[in-house]
Design a protein around this nucleic acid. Structure first.
Lengths: 162, 162
DNA sequence: TATTGTTATACTCTATAACTATA
DNA sequence: TATAGTTATAGAGTATAACAATA
């Protein structure tokens, strides 16, 4: 489209689209549809808790879940009530510290998170079905690095503010 | 890092990082810092209205702003009150349709949006300063295509649901 | 009667503050 | 006295419903 990409990523052009993609992804029916495939009704924060535990692959403390979700503790606590009531997670006292709780997925909770993740991965895979193998590989490599570098930059800003 | 990227973008690996980047970007102090550079205190929806108008490059109707922001009309109306009160936008009746209002940026509103966008672009540029020109170009090309394809896929889902 | 926008109200997600229990 | 978590409350952002004005 006649851009002027002389030797650098055209941040002025890519940034708005990245942000747009961001909001579209958040608001689209993609997540909604993926949640349908989960099979049980869950709000997004609740599902995020399950996905966080699923990706960790092991029980996590409340505080650790909060850190990974980038939210504060009370927010997690509140959703854990509902998730526990519905048999999707179990809350067990951490044997190494009586103050702490370890949150672990039940079979149903793990299944729900897996179905959600599979649905999202399938969709991404489908959307890129027409790409050449080389372009997919290159994008995977550069995008990982891109996210890493930007995340590091963001962390630096946040540290600076402390 | 020992991934198993055989001929396709490893969606299972990239997707969580993309989503994590998404939340980190939303919650980080980057946007906060960029808003500081704007010089006038604004909440995020208000700033998004200004940026939407700035990127359009011309006055927009209330409904059009809502569409571009992916929100509903009343949300925009509410923020326009405050923005108009503070002299950042003007509300003029559309000469071609007396029902509609055209929202246009004032000089201050336009300046605020510009400073915000510049700050974000500068940061992105800085974060990628160590990249080779070739990698930057390649990422720019593939990322644009990536966002286009995914956005198109999302639009297809949303259409389907209608 | 359909469309543009506004007003009024309610809901979702997340934060802060105050508290309890261990350490 | 510091830390892990909980309870209670408050705030930001956005949606839905009912309405007004114009087409």
């Amino acid at each position: 489209m006649g851009d002027e990409n002389h030797g650098h990523i055209d941040a002025a052009a890519v940034l708005p689209r990245l942000m747009q993609f961001n909001t579209v992804l958040n608001r689209s029916r993609l997540a909604e549809r993926a949640m349908d495939r989960v099979g049980i009704p869950l709000d997004r924060p609740g599902l995020t808790v399950l996905v966080t535990l699923r990706m960790a692959g092991e029980p996590l403390r409340v505080g650790e879940i909060a850190t990974r979700m980038q939210v504060v503790g009370p927010h997690v606590t509140r959703h854990l009530h509902e998730l526990e009531r519905r048999g999707l997670v179990r809350r067990v006292t951490d044997p190494s510290d009586q103050r702490a709780r370890l949150i672990e997925l039940t079979a149903e909770g793990s299944g729900a998170a897996s179905r959600y993740l599979e649905s999202m991965v399938d969709w991404f895979t489908d959307a890129l079905v027409d790409w050449s193998d080389e372009d997919r590989q290159t994008l995977g490599r550069l995008l990982s690095r891109f996210v890493d570098d930007l995340t590091a930059g963001l962390a630096a800003i946040d540290d600076q503010a402390t």
